[in-house]
Design a protein around this nucleic acid. Structure first.
Length: 104
DNA sequence: CGACTGACTCGAT
DNA sequence: TATCGAGCCAGTC
């Protein structure tokens, strides 16, 4: 099974598009759902290169520790306005905000 | 081919 | 919380 970058990217976009408002997903989780665990970094690239025309809620994707994209503070604002709990240190409270399929 | 980098993750300190 | 180190994968030079 060889890695198909294009197919993977499309899977990622598809998954990110389904993240409900007020919920977030980690890069690793997205990679896992896309069928390729350990490809978190590829997900990060996908987000960075994602065409804005797709209007992907990429602000709902953070790393496993709940940290937001370096240099993009607006992301935190967007998440807060959607009801995502942000800790005092500016990190997302993954315990509550991480998207679990069971409550979807 | 080797070295470096990054919107990563996990565990240890 | 912050920082490391090791493991991870693809891109770039």
């Amino acid at each position: 099974m060889t890695f198909d970058h294009e197919a993977f990217i499309n899977e990622v976009y598809d998954i990110v598009r389904q993240i409900p408002s007020g919920r977030v997903l980690s890069y690793g989780r997205v990679a896992e759902l896309a069928g390729w665990p350990n490809y978190a970094r590829a997900v990060g690239r996908a987000m960075k290169e994602a065409p804005l025309t797709l209007n992907l809620p990429c602000h709902r994707v953070v790393n496993s520790q709940g940290r937001t994209v370096p240099g993009w503070h607006q992301q935190t604002i967007l998440l807060m306005s959607e009801g995502v709990s942000i800790k005092d240190n500016g990190c997302v409270d993954m315990k509550k905000a991480e998207w679990q399929m069971d409550n979807y």
